[in-house]
Amino acid sequence: MIIDAHVHTYNRSHNALLGSRCSQEIVIRAREAGIDRIVISSLGRTAYLPYPSSQEVREANDDVLKLMQEFPEEVYGLCYLNPRNPDWREEMQRCYDRGMIGIKLWIAVKASSAILFPVIEAAMQRDLFIQQHSYLKNRGNYSDESEPFDVARLGIEYPQARIIMAHAGGNRREGLEAIAPMPNIYVDTSGGVPECGVVENAVAILGSQRVLFGSDAPGRSYTVQQAKITAANIPDAVKHQIMGNNFQGFIRYEDN
C-alpha cells in the first residue's frame, strides 16, 4: 500500500499556476499516480494562510472533511490549527469527532514555543499525531517558522507525542541529526526538488523506519516526489517501508 503522508487541498491561489481544479481532483490524481491513501490538510481556502482566523481555519478544515466523506477509503484528514486562536480546542474537538487523525501545524507558532504546549497535550489526549512544518533555510525562516531544532525541542518536551517533521526539515544533515535522538519524531520526504541523495541521507541518519513518503501535492507532483524514493540508492525493502508501511506503523494502522 502506498500512502502519501503530506498532501494539501487545491486553493484559489493555485489557479494561476495549476489551473482551476475541482477539490476532488487531488484524490483522483493520487489514484492515477498509484497512491492508495493520502493524508491531507488544507492551509486555507483562498491561499496558504500563515495566521488564519478562526473562520478561515474552519473553512479549511471543512474542505478536508468534505473530501473525507466523499473518499472515505482514500483520504485521511488532518486538522489545521492556528494555536494563537482562542478557540483552537473547539476546532480540534470538532475535527476529531469527525474522524481526523492528526493535527497540521504550519508557521503560526514555532514548535518550541510554549504557546503550542497545550495544543500538543490536547492532541495526545485524543491520540492525534502532529504534522509539523519545518525547514532549515539558508537565508532565514519566517518569523514563526520552525527549524528542525524547534521540532527537536518539542520532541524532548513531549517524548510520547507522535510527531512528523514535514519536508524532513529541509533535508539538511544538521536538521536530521537534531531530531535523530528522538524516536517519536518521524520525517516525511515531501516538497523540494527531487535531488539525488536526500532520501538516502534521511535513512542513513534516522534509520529506515522513521522516514515516510510525502509529496506536498498539489504544489509538487505525486509522481516526481515518488521518484525520490523509487530512484534512491536504498534497498527495495526500505523503499517499500517508506512508501507506506512506515506510516501504517506510525498511526498503528494494522489493516492491509
Binding site: L17, L18, G19, R21, E25, R220, S221, A232
Partner: peptide
Amino acid sequence: GEGLLEEIIGKYGAQKILYGSNYPFFY
C-alpha cells in the same frame, strides 16, 4: 505541480518546451 504542465501546455502550447532532467542533480 499537480496540473502545472497541463496548464502551461494548454495556455502556451508545447512547441517551446524541451525535456530536461537536470541529472545528476536530480534523479
